[in-house]
Simulated assay, not measured.
Amino acid sequence: MKHVTCAVIGCGVIAPTHIESFIKIPDLSIKHLCDLDLNKAEKLAAQYSIPNCTTDYRAILMDPEVDCVSVCTDHFSHAEITVAALEHGKHVICEKALTSTESGIDAMLDAHRKRPELVFSGIFQHRCEPTNRYLRNLIQSGKFGRILTCSLYVSCLRTNEYYQNDAWRGTWANEGGGVLINQSIHHLDLLRYFFGDIESVAASYDNFVHQGVIETEDTIAIALRFRSGILGTVIATSGSKSVTWRSGYTITGTEGFMEYTDFIPSYVNFVDSSLKEKVIKDFSDCKLDDALQVSKGYYGGGHPAQIADIIDAIRNGREPYVSGEAAAGTAKLVLACYESSRTGKWVNL
């Protein structure tokens, strides 16, 4: 088995999740941590016995022993770091959102096209969770009949202090948006994973409860038309004090209906009653991976599974389960929603 040497660039809240996911993988070592705040990197390095720390990611890219980097910085810097890493021959794992501008997304994809032998993946860990894979198979195998509509809601709370603790959060320049690009992007990605590509969007956003603290939206409503003809809706807010984290989907088909709350089916019905019983049992039999202790509970258990898949892709010269191109599609969807709200028009993807 090929030994893989990794580095983590960015030592904020998501970095320990990447580090602990790496630690689970045999024949893998973490050689470097990088953060603009050296104290952050050194504290994390001491916790996990990682030998090297730096404030300059370029120093990591110059190390010939490094095979793969995890990019865990603010959204805007993802493109610059990813492009440089690919140019230096490093495999790249990039956290969501892939980046916050159309030009940045294109630059990342272009850099990967020039180095197709490298693995480039964007983190959308919920695609790797057993219940979501099972639901996707149900949808794609036609068990719901013709899908007519789908909907998504995300209700959560982000306090003023949350935004004030990191200067890049809640800014158009560095985060690229608010509740949609950050808290809701994984759920939006699952809409594409479940139902396929989206043809056009119409959106409207506002900042209802964080005025004077953030520039970006804390609430958004979106209408979607999928390429398959499905009609969908999305509502999301980070201003909910009564429900600090809850998400859910509804799926309406000609033969079946489901409410899917926090990745668990809360209501299921099919015209074929025997199918209903089977689906309920199959969901209960799905083995759920526990979230890492260092992770927030709503991250789910998918990070270790996705990162393990990426390392296996590196070792075996194959495409990862979640490609950079797939992650780019969701980032472009987010940007299209923002464009629609600004222009007051439907935007085609």
Rank of each mutant, 00 (worst) to 15 (best):
L190N: 09
Q47F: 11
E199L: 12
T82K: 00
P304V: 12
S273L: 13
I139V: 14
W346C: 00
I9G: 03
E255S: 02
T261M: 09
D285A: 15
V243K: 00
V13I: 03
V83Y: 08
F76W: 11
T99E: 04
T73K: 01
T252N: 05
A111N: 13
V71N: 03
D272M: 04
V268S: 10
S121Y: 05
K345R: 02
S103V: 12
F144I: 04
T171L: 08
C150Y: 04
D166Y: 13
S247V: 15
K296V: 11
Y48N: 09
I105F: 01
D110R: 07
V69M: 00
V322F: 04
R225E: 15
G122Y: 12
L190K: 00
C34V: 11
L275G: 12
G104K: 01
R318G: 06
T82F: 07
K287S: 08
D309Y: 00
V66G: 03
E255H: 03
V279Y: 11
V279F: 15
L148V: 06
N137D: 10
G170I: 06
L188D: 02
L61S: 07
A291W: 01
D106A: 10
S155F: 06
G12F: 04
A202P: 08
K24M: 09
R115F: 14
H78D: 06
C128S: 12
G12L: 03
I251P: 00
H88L: 02
L157D: 05
S184G: 05
F22M: 10
F120H: 10
H303I: 11
I310G: 01
Q293H: 05
H32N: 08
L180V: 12
A107D: 13
Q306I: 13
T330V: 14
Q164F: 05
S274W: 10
